[in-house]
Amino acid sequence: MIIQLNDINKTYPGAVPLHVLKDINLSIERGELVSIMGASGSGKSTLLNILGILDTYDSGSYYLDGTLIKNLSENHAAELRGRMIGFVFQSFNLINYKSALENVALPLFYQGVSRRKRNALAMEYLEKMGLADRATHLPSEMSGGQKQRVAIARALVTKPAIILADEPTGALDSHTSKEVMQVFRDLNAEGMTIAIVTHDPGVGAQTNRIIRISDGRIEEPDKAL
C-alpha cells in the first residue's frame, strides 16, 4: 500500500468555513494507475495537495509508503516530497531560464547529488522521454508536449514512490494529450505508481481505476474497472 488515507477532513477557515474534504478514505496500491476525477470545486485539487504533502489536513491520517504524514516540519516535508513524490503540473512549471537538462536535474541539486551524477541521471531520463536532442533547449523553445515530457522526466529523476499529476493534459491538444497519456501508461507498465487528477473523462478512461470525488466525498469508493 503506497497511499493510505483514513477519514481525512480538511476545512478552509474563513468567514464561512469551507469543508472541502469530508471523511476521505482512499488507498492506492503500488503499481496502480489511478485517476481522481471531479468537477471543479469538488475538492480534487485539495486532495492532490494533501497527497503531495503540499497542504495539511485537519483530522484523519495519511500514510505515504508507511510513513505517517502529519505535523511535519517544513524541512522534513520538503525532504519527503523530494524523495517520494514526483509532480507533473498542468502548466508544466518548468523554470523558464533553465535548459531542459537543468530543469530535470534540479530536484537532484536540492538532494545534494553531485553535478556530474545529476546531469548524467537527468540525461538518462531525457533520453527515456525521447528528448535527448532537446537537452540544451529552453522551455520556450519546446512544444507543449515536449515541455510536459521534460516535466515528467523531472518527476522521475528522483525515483519517487509515486507520481502525482495535476491535469497533465489540460494545456495540450488532443493528439499531444494522447502521447503524454501513453507515456504515463508506459511508465505504469514498468511498475510506477501514478495518480492523475483530471476532469477529462478521456484521460480517466485510460487509467486503471477512477476515483470520483464530488462535493468533498468520494462517490464510488474503490470501484475497480
Binding site: 524541512n75 520538503a78 523530494g82
Partner: peptide, 9 residues
C-alpha cells in the same frame, strides 16, 4: 515550483 520539487526553506 522549487519547493514542490524538494527545496527546503
Amino acid at each position: 515550483i522549487r519547493r514542490a520539487i524538494g527545496a527546503k526553506p
